[in-house]
Design a protein around this nucleic acid. Sequence first.
DNA 1: CAGCAGCATCGATCCGCCTGCATATCAGCA
DNA 2: TGCTGATATGCAGGCGGATCGATGCTGCTG
Lengths: 122, 122
Amino acid sequence: MGTALAEMTMPQISPLAGEPIERADAERLAGVLKALADPARLRLLSLIQSAPEGEACVCDLTAPLGLSQPTVSHHLRILTEAGLLEREKRGVWAYYRLVPSAIATIADLLTPPRKRATKKAR
Amino acid sequence: MGTALAEMTMPQISPLAGEPIERADAERLAGVLKALADPARLRLLSLIQSAPEGEACVCDLTAPLGLSQPTVSHHLRILTEAGLLEREKRGVWAYYRLVPSAIATIADLLTPPRKRATKKAR
DNA sequence: CAGCAGCATCGATCCGCCTGCATATCAGCA
DNA sequence: TGCTGATATGCAGGCGGATCGATGCTGCTG
């Protein structure tokens, strides 16, 4: 299935501002926000983003989070399916990194037509 | 009664970028995002924001949402406690409107590497 | 080719929350 | 004062999700 966020960036999802959003758009946006709305997952994103190469494997994340390895894998899975993380398996390790401008895209969907010009994809 | 968001805008809450976020900050940010991460509440915000005077009462919101009046009141309560809505009671009606830049604040917390000078680099 | 280490998946438990119905509260009005 | 309409709150059912232990899978490595 296509990473939730991809369905938002590609075929425009209604931003929160402007005309009332449709039920389907609300569901999609809520789905991605739900992936963000968890302390453990926010810390995961933060940890990965601030890691040496901007990437981290599961074994590096369990300790700082204080969660079991299955639980961490579970959260990483949710973030990945939401389109916020990408996974690359090198040998025995699975490295996760942020999808370039995924979070910025969400932020743009929330903020009204401010004076920013970050709407273009890459 | 800190309306959650007030604790984010006023004192500093760690944005998602930069150094790894603390557990307490993650909890606060997740709390506000949780209020956003619901289809019904997203539609409520959208409906209120696009209403004639930028405000709406409960009776105007139940129909377009297709939810019962108690449920709508429940969602409005959550959004208000999160600091996203403000409530004003005029006569028998309760009018809700968006807190000016609440959502923009959340967006800024998600995407600091912007040109914004939200706070010290590090 | 065993044995081991890193991850993902499964099954189960526990908790939080979305929803509606019933009811309480409160302001305006006859 | 008593009634009506607009909201808020209590209560309860049901579903989704966060977590962990156990297990399965797969590349290294000795």
